[in-house]
Design a protein around this nucleic acid. Structure first.
Lengths: 161, 161
DNA sequence: TATTGTTATACTCTATAACTATA
DNA sequence: TATAGTTATAGAGTATAACAATA
């Protein structure tokens, strides 16, 4: 939720910033873009009282009913303890339920309620619109290329460690 | 710094997770890749006692001597108050100095010290190697496409607000 | 009045260790 | 012993309001 640059800051005597050095710093540019996305997404999800993490969890649970928390944490690439509060929040709002798994009483099978599925429908539509807004000016092929590159980065990590 | 998936988690009866729904969620994939980058970068910078933010600030100051804090915050897309602690840390380590601007005694001109420039040289080399490692498997053209897409997302934000 | 840098503060995300109950 | 989920906690990033000094 950053404010726009003020005119006063734009017109100074100092060298225009550093495209030269930072151009090669891919992580820096991805961070900046991610901040923009995260910021706009937060605004988009606010009317639904969801955040990126609660939204992602809800979508994954609706699409994969019966999923366990450890599987969901793995899918979301977050630690189990951090997922607990997310699931707590969705359960408290009665968007999902924790069902005990009969064959393994340690685990929960996560399922969306009707209210959860309804919020899912509305919020997915809003997020789709949000992404179309931010990605206008980026054609379909480019988006596919970006997604492939993001997966390649994840893969490099898996292979390297 | 996530651990690898255990074999036990990989072989379950639950549907393999949801590429179908999440594929369209570009922000989700960028977030995952950014987490990987951030994580690997943190390890890369640890020997230099730098983090992504302190590294970025150091690089920008070395390349743009005389920059003011408000300009740097703007370049880094963070709020002024959050930059203060970053600059404090770099100054405490004597990597940069805050010089009063004679023509505007409210502002500081930020400049790197010799030690700062030396750390810059070493850390930039390490970060370059880190990015080559993570981006092996992504060709030059694709990287250029990704960078252009990231800038387009930033632009969409600027135009939209 | 407005801007630069600052302090204080609060919220979110992330990560680890240690616990419980089950397996 | 190991795993699923939990609790407690700490570190880092981000955002806003309010202040002093200066313009």
């Amino acid at each position: 939720m950053k404010k726009a640059v003020t005119p006063a800051q734009e017109s100074t005597e100092v060298t225009k910033v550093s495209d030269a050095t930072m151009r090669g710093f891919v992580g820096y540019q991805i961070k900046r873009a991610f901040n923009v996305i995260q910021d706009d997404l937060a605004k988009t999800l606010k009317p639904f009282e969801l955040r990126m993490l609660t939204y992602t969890a809800l979508v994954l649970i609706v699409d994969n009913p019966g999923m366990r928390q450890s599987q969901l944490a793995d899918a979301m690439d977050i630690e189990r303890p951090n997922l607990v509060v997310i699931i707590d929040e969705l359960e408290r709002r009665e968007l999902i339920v924790r069902d005990r798994v009969p064959t393994d009483r340690r685990a929960y099978a996560l399922k969306a309620t009707l209210a959860g599925r309804r919020l899912y429908e509305k919020s997915v539509a809003a997020v789709t619109a949000h992404e179309e807004r931010l990605l206008r000016g980026v054609d379909k092929d480019t988006i596919a290329t970006v997604l492939a590159a993001m997966k390649a980065i994840e893969k490099a990590k898996r292979d390297g460690s």
